[in-house]
Design a protein around this nucleic acid. Sequence first.
DNA 1: GTCTATACATCGATAGAC
DNA 2: GTCTATCGATGTATAGAC
Lengths: 188, 188
Amino acid sequence: MARREEKVAEIVGHAWELARSQGFQGLSLRALATRVGMRQPSLYEYFASKDALYDAMFADANRQLLARLEALSLPADPRRALKSFFGTFTQFALEDDVRGQLMFLRPIPGFVPTPESYSWAQDVLGRAVDLLVAAGVTDPGDIDCFVAMVAGLITAQSSNEPGGDRWTRHLDRMIDLHLDDAQPRSTT
Amino acid sequence: MARREEKVAEIVGHAWELARSQGFQGLSLRALATRVGMRQPSLYEYFASKDALYDAMFADANRQLLARLEALSLPADPRRALKSFFGTFTQFALEDDVRGQLMFLRPIPGFVPTPESYSWAQDVLGRAVDLLVAAGVTDPGDIDCFVAMVAGLITAQSSNEPGGDRWTRHLDRMIDLHLDDAQPRSTT
DNA sequence: GTCTATACATCGATAGAC
DNA sequence: GTCTATCGATGTATAGAC
């Protein structure tokens, strides 16, 4: 019976709406229950704790991102593929503030994703690493720097000028910069 | 009479200790008052609200950083000066988790520094920009990318491997990469 | 300037009837 | 599975005696 899963998905959807309008701070079980149309204790029928709700949201966000990335038809050229992949990644991270925060920062004190939920995030990272290797970035240090660079642009954009492109417009140029830098060392 | 300032500084010091051991979440006025040796309502003699306490901590952290940076005797060579400056900056940001979070992230929902406190942070950024310009990085976009790169390394290090150097060890190399990239365009 | 006492709100979570 | 009722804790902030 999928009735339960549907209800869980519905609750998570309302939780996102609430978090978007009030922040994670305003995401109380009472407010959530009211929005869903039930009483606060009834939520415990679907989530054993508030952290379990957060965990479901975290997994949901990462599944969304994975679906978005899998829907891409990547160019054969590794460099263009990387730009498409991380361009989509960046757009996804920035188009929804609270979702991006939950995925990439730690906006909720004390909450740590379960390994099950975190595996979705690792899946995304794995695809990124595959593309980087295909583009000639094989050194682990170079991969770390590349990922940190993208995260740096996203974080700066999100916290200083949400909705703008002051930082993200440099993404392709920064990708080229990192690829050119890593290339000589990998092709020996 | 500086009695009052001394007491304020003492309270802020205890607040840092408490935040370090319990996180910002555990920084309650009750716990802080207990640690200081007074009752919770007495704190209102020194801070009009809890946000005022946060603001004092924010200003304190930025003043600490500014003092650390001003104590540096920077090399004459702009490139070496940049590495010294941002190396110190990075070390400062990472040597105290909660302090770095308060300065560079938004760990406290709803708290926004007052303009007076924020001016200290702008002072730090101003010095960084001066050094970048002296090193030939004059394009605002290049400056944005450079700052985002440093922040990206710090954030990755802090959130994935606090205490280590998996990301920060690439700082000098990344600085060279960005400087070499910006140079041709600035010297025409 | 520090205290006691307390107001007042909000929260997550549980017990138990239905 | 949903409800009412409530527990127990925490939080900021204020009133007023001393």
